[in-house]
Amino acid sequence: MKHIAVIGAGQAGATLVETLRKSGFAGRLTLWGAEDALPYQRPPLSKAYLLGEMTRDRLHLRPQSFYDDHDVELHLGTRIAELDTEAKTLNHAGGTETFDAAILATGSTPHTLPDRCTGGLPGTHVIRTLADIDRLRPQMIPGKRMLVVGGGYIGLEAAAVARKIGLDVTLVELNTRILGRVACAPTADWFRHLHREHGVDIREGVGLDTLLGEDRIEVARLTDGTEIPADIVIAGIGAYPETSLANAAGLTLDNGIAVDAQGRTSAPCIWAAGDCCSFPVGDLRIRLESVPNAIDMAEVVARNLLGAGEDYHPKPWFWSDQYDVKLQIAGLNTGFDNIVVRDGDGRSHWYFQGDTLLAVDAMNAPRDYMVGKRLIEAGRSPDRTAVADPDVPIKSLM
């Protein structure tokens, strides 16, 4: 194999090229990214970087010298326009490249507010890329009024940072409660209380109707007819897998680019990893948007491209930082029918399906998180009564 092309220069893409070199691939290796920045960490964008506590260079996953030393050709600021799976070519503004195998690591793209909501006014933002935050950060001035649309983790993190800076913040969630798609009601209750304690005006069951103003945002009209003053609007309404290139190339899609357990797409020469693709887990097909999944899956796919033949078995975990709270999540809560609450050093919510432990949300409870994570990965479930009893040492649940 003479040339492997990695398309997408985020966390998965950077991990792919590093793992390919570590695994012995000595041929031509190219990494193509639409952004002009070196591959960087995304989680700090909405927290430390937005707050001005982290410089741009500290976001980089690796310095330029790493790619030079490992003979990785970086093609940054270059968007792949077309992928031909039969001719094994990729086209971009600068020409056409041939490859022996390509790996798609195109990530996900945030949903934006529809035009009917923005009224064509400037001042609406999403949080995904360095450029997004560089546009937003100069607007984050104490005393300004921010409207956050969407009560998921991105929206809540943005609200927390804005309050720390000193903005007035209103957050609206069209569903009946915040975190409705990702967490249980007790976790939502806990974070609602946290944000209200810090001065965020949270309104549930109401969304944004339209923005009003002359040449800038001045007022947000909500779906219940209420009008509130606003200077800045953040859309935290989720993301979708970036599949446009794969779709045009005729690859099979299923909630993202459909791959098998080893990362192969429907075209023999094309593989995929990270946020952009869905993969089989038991009888289900899932897609995970997280840094750990991007890293772990990319490592497996890179080795498989070189012949390892490993199935990918995800070990899902996530985190979110809001104010002085670290939320750590282990497992997937799909299908839970019971929540066990544990109070002690911090608080944790344990998701069960019957007597089977599925997932844990731990708020400033790192020991609960670590024990829950190990239990889930081992396929073991603790006694629910023992979990709920703060007098039962957490380690004894193992």
Score class of each variant (00 low, 15 high):
323 Y>F: 02
8 G>S: 05
348 S>H: 03
188 A>N: 03
252 T>L: 14
183 A>V: 08
353 Q>V: 00
218 E>W: 07
4 I>F: 02
272 A>Y: 02
248 A>F: 10
263 G>W: 00
206 V>E: 07
373 K>M: 05
244 S>T: 15
17 V>D: 09
126 V>W: 05
378 A>L: 01
144 K>R: 15
74 L>S: 07
279 F>T: 09
194 L>R: 15
369 Y>G: 09
267 A>E: 11
319 W>E: 08
264 R>G: 04
94 G>D: 14
42 R>P: 00
397 L>P: 07
328 Q>Y: 04
381 S>Y: 01
276 C>T: 11
193 H>L: 15
124 T>R: 13
128 R>M: 06
343 D>F: 05
355 D>W: 01
299 E>G: 13
148 V>Q: 08
28 R>T: 14
237 I>H: 06
11 Q>S: 14
387 V>Y: 00
213 G>W: 02
162 A>E: 01
234 I>C: 04
149 V>F: 06
291 V>P: 06
143 G>Y: 00
262 Q>S: 13
294 A>Y: 07
213 G>R: 09
279 F>L: 09
38 L>S: 03
140 M>I: 07
213 G>V: 03
126 V>G: 12
91 N>T: 15
4 I>A: 13
301 V>F: 01
148 V>E: 06
111 H>Y: 12
58 R>G: 11
347 R>P: 03
127 I>D: 11
21 R>K: 09
46 S>Q: 04
187 T>L: 06
300 V>R: 14
232 I>H: 11
261 A>K: 11
31 L>S: 04
32 W>N: 13
49 Y>C: 03
207 G>Y: 08
262 Q>W: 08
39 P>Y: 07
380 R>Y: 09
